[in-house]
């Protein structure tokens, strides 16, 4: 598979604070790739730097043939990438239905609202309620569901299982598998290695704002110990 996303020597700053020190990685089309690493390693910042969201960046972020790093933030999603942030970003002043409808459809080929609701039936029942009145798991599903409509082929998911009950984590795992089967390419930030190892085709380890290791699915048996050491499991 050709690479859909290629990041080379990516640096990023919050104001004066230099947090990414040359991240290099690539995500093949149609695959699930994880970013693993401890708290504060720079995983979230990597996703933010791809989107240009609240961070200054330098280096190369290529999506297909397009260079993203020099684009205004609102132009980046139009090339087919969508971001589900770590804090989920459900809007309190919007209903569930409004939250779902908020991200505009930017490219053809996205899922319809009906398809999204079929994937997350709970959201259909609660469509009229306030977005932030949902449970944590439902909010996560809303946060993922709403970006599936946009036509993006690359999804950036930041710790979708964080703080959720095991049953919900399992459901989210199934959803990610479904999305992969539907042809989405996914860059998944995770701290839950057990969860990630079942889904991913490739694992990157991030430490101190750099990618320090990479393990392919095929080498997982040999690499597992190494990954667990990085994560301090």
């Amino acid at each position: 598979m050709p690479d859909l996303l290629t990041i080379r020597d990516l640096h990023a700053w919050y104001g004066e604070s230099h947090v990414l020190h040359g991240v290099t990685l690539s995500v093949p089309e149609g695959q699930v790739v994880t970013l693993l690493g401890r708290n504060g390693a720079g995983k979230t910042s990597t996703l933010r730097a791809i989107m240009g969201a609240g961070i200054t960046r330098k280096g190369s972020v290529q999506l297909g043939d397009s260079e993203l790093s020099s684009l205004a933030p609102h132009r980046i999603p139009r090339l087919g990438v969508a971001w589900c942030p770590e804090e989920r970003g459900i809007f309190a002043s919007l209903s569930v239905a409004e939250n779902l409808a908020l991200p505009p459809v930017l490219l053809a080929g996205g899922m319809s609202t009906e398809e999204v609701l079929d994937l997350f039936p709970r959201l259909r029942e609660k469509a009229g309620g306030q977005g932030t009145k949902l449970s944590g798991g439902e909010q996560q599903m809303l946060a993922i569901g709403r970006i599936l409509r946009t036509g993006a082929r690359l999804l950036l998911l930041d710790e979708p299982t964080e703080g959720l009950a095991p049953v919900i984590v399992q459901q989210i795992g199934q959803i990610i598998s479904v999305l992969r089967e539907r042809g989405f390419t996914i860059l998944l930030v995770e701290q839950n290695f057990k969860f990630a190892s079942r889904l991913a085709d490739r694992h990157y380890v991030v430490e101190h704002g750099q990618v320090v290791d990479c393990v392919e699915r095929a080498d997982l048996a040999a690499g597992r110990g190494r990954l667990e050491t990085y994560l301090g499991v």
């Binding site: 919007l94 908020l102 946009t150």
Partner: peptide, 24 residues
Amino acid sequence: PLGARLRAATENPTLVRAFGINVP
């Protein structure tokens, strides 16, 4: 829907912009 964008941008302009909406 326009109002929903406005309310959302009032809460979190960075994320709304990351949805491809021209917040500026």
